[in-house]
């Protein structure tokens, strides 16, 4: 009997604590001017080990050096990144939880209809880094040797050349825009991650794919894969300097992939100013710059709040033109 009573009373106590919890939290809020006063949770839209995770973690390391507070990374890759974006969107806007993603999740997911909200539902802080390592690659068996060659062959046989993507994702859009700008027709297949793209190209089952340079560098040297072009505005000198941009090949096509730091809507402007200040400082750090080049052949680039918003809005408008094709 005694045991039962104890059981019941502790249970009741626990329930009471639960109801009190809501009130307890708000009292311990920190003033925005001093942010960050404790560890910041960063939700990353990709699993550990990839380029997005790498950028987030590298940024986090230097964030701690500058502010003295750690950034704790949580990898939430599910649902094409939509689980992570939804989580942050619905969090309290107190600067304790932030989102680290790229335009694939922030814009393409909206364009593809995967999420029913947009970048306007966040307080976008800045663009801490820009991926400039992606290249268009052709398999050996396709016989394609250059962008000009690709355009010629695709025009001769529309819809025959296959392009590897993840349907509804960033690489799908990359393919659609390429088709639009080059005026060609490719057969877009769902192949999966970068690893799947490489194996399927090596196995001769697909002709084209957009992949990070580091992952295909060796294959370009062995001749198993052919790098056709880079998606950057100007040649990224950290890649093989002989890789042309699309513009140089006569196609007006630039698709750099900015990473984005975003807060839940309604975050104090002081916090956003502060992270911009920190991000600017990090981008100047020579060690940080070297780490990015080592990891993903990526030069450091930081785009501040206003400029970032403008760039993203422009990007969104551009991508929206492909909405019907992507969905």
């Amino acid at each position: 009997m005694k045991k039962k009573q104890l059981f019941a009373s502790v249970l009741a106590g626990a329930l009471l604590l639960g109801t009190l919890a809501g009130c307890g939290n708000s009292a311990s809020g920190d003033s925005a001017e001093e942010w960050p006063t404790k560890a910041v949770n960063v939700v990353v839209t990709a699993s550990a080990g990839g380029d997005t995770d790498f950028n987030a973690r590298t940024f986090a390391t230097y964030f701690e050096q500058v502010t003295g507070q750690p950034m704790v990374i949580a990898n939430t890759a599910g649902g094409g990144g939509s689980v992570a974006t939804s989580e942050v969107k619905d969090s309290k806007a107190d600067g304790t939880k932030i989102l680290f993603c790229h335009t694939g999740q922030m814009i393409v997911n909206e364009v593809a209809g995967l999420i029913d909200y947009s970048m306007d539902d966040f307080d976008i802080a800045c663009i801490p880094a820009v991926d400039k390592g992606t290249v268009l690659v052709a398999s050996k068996s396709s016989g394609i040797t250059s962008v000009e060659d690709l355009v010629e062959k695709a025009k001769a046989a529309p819809g025959e050349i296959t392009y590897a993507s993840e349907l509804g994702g960033y690489s799908h859009l990359q393919g659609l825009i390429l088709m639009g700008k080059a005026g060609i027709d490719l057969k877009i297949l769902d192949i999966g991650s970068a690893s799947d793209k490489i194996t399927n190209m090596l196995g001769g089952r697909v002709d084209l794919a957009a992949i990070s340079y580091g992952a295909v560098k060796d294959y370009a040297e062995t001749g198993d894969l052919v790098i056709l072009a880079q998606y950057n505005e100007e040649r990224n000198e950290n890649l093989d300097p002989d890789i042309p941009t699309f513009v140089e090949c006569g196609i007006d096509f630039v698709m750099e992939k900015p990473y984005i730091i975003a807060f839940p809507k309604g975050t104090d402007q002081a916090i956003i100013d502060k992270i911009n200040e920190v991000a600017a400082q990090i981008a100047e750090d020579p060690d940080y710059q070297a780490a990015l080049i080592d990891g993903y052949n990526q030069p450091a680039e930081y785009i501040a709040h206003d400029e970032a918003l403008e760039l993203l809005a422009q990007t969104r408008e551009e991508y929206m033109a492909y909405q019907d094709l992507l969905q």
Partner: peptide, 22 residues
């Protein structure tokens, strides 16, 4: 149910204590 609102430390302590008894 109380894991998040009340926090790990309190709920886990209470849970373990009661579960041991049970």
């Amino acid at each position: 149910a109380l894991f998040e609102p009340v926090g790990f430390l309190i709920t886990t302590f209470v849970y373990l204590f009661l579960q041991f008894i049970l």
